[in-house]
């Protein structure tokens, strides 16, 4: 029933990291799904907390959030009528500094690349921590981001030529 002797009260994880987890999920999911995915993430984390090793709680929570987001994507792909736009695309048009075209393309990336981009640029994580959250190496995290950036650049340039 008890966790490792140094585990802080779970509430301190919610207080410190739910903003980052919410930002990540907003980059990954449609607006209507974010609140529920955030609750699901915290509930799953609470369930697993006694076995958590206590290192880097933010990356640990983001790993759980990524799995929840992927579950949600899978559920959606079986419901083709559902929108797949992340909240960033659907509700961002009135925000200052927001680039709907660019983030629309981010929303079309494969889930792992999209997650890598959101973690790297929206949460400002180092590649080591991006890797921890994605369950992959630092080098693989870097590759995912570079691959995504290359795709985004190509799409942006192709669009320019069409105009």
């Amino acid at each position: 029933m008890s966790g490792p002797p140094t585990a802080p009260p779970f509430q301190t994880l919610i207080d410190a990291h739910s903003g980052a987890v919410a930002a990540f999920l907003r980059g990954m999911l449609p607006a209507a799904d974010v609140e529920d995915a955030l609750q699901e993430t915290m509930l799953a984390a609470l369930r697993a907390y006694p076995a958590f090793d206590g290192r880097n709680p933010r990356a640990w929570l983001l790993t759980i959030a990524r799995r929840k987001a992927i579950d949600e994507h899978r559920a959606r792909s079986r419901r083709p009528e559902a929108l797949t736009e992340p909240e960033a695309v659907a509700s961002g048009s009135d925000r200052g500094g927001y680039d709907a075209e660019l983030w629309g393309r981010v929303g079309a990336l494969p889930p792992k690349q999209r997650a890598a981009v959101v973690l790297r640029f929206a949460l400002d994580l180092r590649y080591r921590e991006v890797g921890e959250a994605l369950d992959c190496s630092e080098a693989a995290a870097r590759r995912n981001v570079h691959e995504a950036v290359r795709t985004l650049r190509a799409a942006t340039e192709a669009e320019k030529e069409e105009r």
């Binding site: 919610i14 990540f24 980059g27 925000r95 500094g97 983030w103 959101v118 640029f121 950036v149 650049r153």
Partner: peptide, 20 residues
């Protein structure tokens, strides 16, 4: 520069108050 664009627009794309 896509990376700079992503950096400068990411917060606006994902930030929102969280009701703790």
């Amino acid at each position: 520069n896509i990376e700079n664009d992503l950096k400068s627009t990411a917060r606006a794309a994902t930030a929102a108050p969280t009701d703790l």
